[in-house]
Design a protein around this nucleic acid. Structure first.
Lengths: 334, 334
DNA sequence: ATGAAAGCGCTAACAA
DNA sequence: TTGTTAGCGCTTTCAT
């Protein structure tokens, strides 16, 4: 705190009585450094309050020491979803202590060229892709520039490494639970057709219906917003006023569905049982609290990050993709 | 797309038939460049798909071309709050097209030293501070290293530039509205004592109570989580079973309060009227939909960013701080 | 209006 | 195990 200017690596070397290279080696945790030198350097660093200049490191080291979190979709939606917040938390948790920065980037429809140019500019070492829709061309573009990438959720097109929750199993358990409650006219509000997460949950639900020899025709698509959940619920009720259960593929959509149910004077769960998906904060604070399929989203974020960093570190034999377990959480709504 | 290696500025210069310096000037939008040279460079850039290396720019230019969004508090809470998502969206909107990166950083209690070292390392040109509590030492530390900073919400200690909603006015309008409904036993669930946002809203509510010559003793603190909102509501009801209105200083806490009210069999708004704050997505999807004080959080994010960038650009006569308007949105809960 | 040359602070061969 | 020496790709004087 005595000096006013930021110390450079050279000062550290001087104070520690070694060369710049040795300081660099210590900083980067390299192998061939004597304990004595290491200690001296650490002390000098502490004493001077030294912190390396990332720009210089990146430039010289040919590594950016940063990864991007690319949010596909206008960002508007996604960012408001607690799901995203949890992923972010997981990513961050996995990053702490590693001196790797997180750059947040949102791809806008028209932007992709810029985005890709930027990412290929060597500004980041790899990218985490969140909220991919359909066969997003972004995936191809990024693999095209040979940027290591891990997707959050199975992408429909392309074949990038991804980490996902076991959505099929989640849908299956949700469906089975509703059936076990004696419900016979079970509907589902699915995710958008162009996202694997949604489709996988739907497949699980269908399996449960077929196991119970129940019809699986009451399917309505929505897009992970409360509003779309409300609309979907309304049309389901129109198609089948007698429905007695709904599996909603996301808590945030279930909120909208609940609202419509309440407005129609239908009681949850006595008239209509509801199972959500995510077990976000929304689930426990809903009225009534939602029975929902729990996925550990923070773990999802951590795992994605771990997978990406492992690849960057050149670890061999990495599993291309990983599936995390899901489980049913029982609350009042079903 | 023909070449495999990333083009460097030198290639661009060659193709455009000028020097590196001129290319650099064009890229940085400098003044003294002939139209002819400028065009040639632009063409060459397009043709080669050139994108400058940030690390090199930062190193040479002594600017990071990045700003940090520092989330004080364990991050866990904040990130799940739609409020944060909206701020983020605003920040991002203001940043697009400016080739300035957003680094997300979370300060953990023990971390601050590292954080400050990092930020002072010249990795970013400035910082946006979100979710400050009390007289957070971080503020002093950052101003200490002369890093330009803008806070989101008025910080209780220190005196950094900030952008905030007009929280006092919001609380005032909320209180007046409840009074105008004929409510006479009006409570409030306030934000934590150590955050100005909360205290300012509380002051506004108090003013409304005093205007109406009503008691302002029914105050319960909470911490911007649904759970704390629920606890606060429960203790208010215990203290005053006859209360007929509550102003809750955040929608996300109102969710918890609603839950308790429902559980107790109290009807909203007939038994207890509720006014929230934020007008987040939570407000319109709550049961019943919440009357709430609207603040344009995305605008808040944009304004903070604008203010920071203006300072970085050396603009003179900047207002130290800015207050954004709030307004009441009428829905079913009050 | 433009080019030449000197670094920015660090890492990475290479030698010792 | 350590030091020396080149750059990394760009911006920025300083000439011209």
């Amino acid at each position: 705190m005595t000096d006013t200017a930021k110390p450079r690596i050279e000062e550290v070397a001087r104070v520690a009585g070694v060369s710049k290279s040795t300081v660099s080696r210590v900083i980067n945790g390299e192998q061939y450094v004597s304990a004595r030198a290491r200690n001296a350097v650490h002390e000098a660093i502490a004493q001077l309050g030294y912190s390396p200049n990332q720009a210089a490191r990146s430039l010289a080291g040919n590594r950016a020491n940063a990864i991007a979190l690319v949010v596909s979709e206008q960002g508007s939606r996604v960012l408001s979803d607690p799901f995203f917040a949890s992923v972010l938390r997981g990513v961050h948790a996995e990053l702490t202590g590693r001196r790797i920065q997180l750059l947040l980037m949102m791809s806008q429809p028209a932007d992709n060229i810029d985005l890709v140019a930027y990412l290929s500019g060597g500004h980041v070492d790899g990218a985490l892709l969140v909220s991919l829709h359909g066969a997003d061309p972004l995936v191809a573009m990024l693999t095209g520039i040979r940027l290591p990438v891990v997707a959050c959720g199975r992408p429909l097109g392309g074949s990038v490494p991804f980490v996902d929750a076991d959505n099929f199993n989640g849908g299956l358990e949700a469906g089975r639970h509703l059936v076990s409650l004696g419900r016979r006219r079970v509907a589902t509000i699915a995710g958008p057709r162009d996202m694997a997460v949604g489709m996988d949950r739907l497949s699980g639900w269908r399996r449960a219906m077929s196991e119970a020899r129940l019809a699986d025709d009451l399917v309505q698509e929505a897009d992970f917003t409360p509003e779309s959940g409300a609309r979907a619920m309304a049309s389901l009720l129109e198609r089948e006023p007698e429905l007695d259960a709904v599996f909603v593929a996301a808590d945030i959509m279930a909120l909208g569905a609940l609202q419509v149910l309440h407005a129609r004077g239908l009681r949850v769960p006595s008239d209509v049982a509801i199972v959500g998906f995510d077990d976000s904060v929304l689930a426990s604070t809903a009225t009534p609290p939602l029975t929902t399929v729990r996925q550990d989203v923070e773990q999802l974020g951590r795992t994605m990050t771990w997978r990406l960093l492992a690849e960057l570190a050149g670890e061999p034999d990495l599993p291309p993709s990983l599936l995390l377990p899901t489980s049913l959480v029982h609350r009042a709504s079903a």
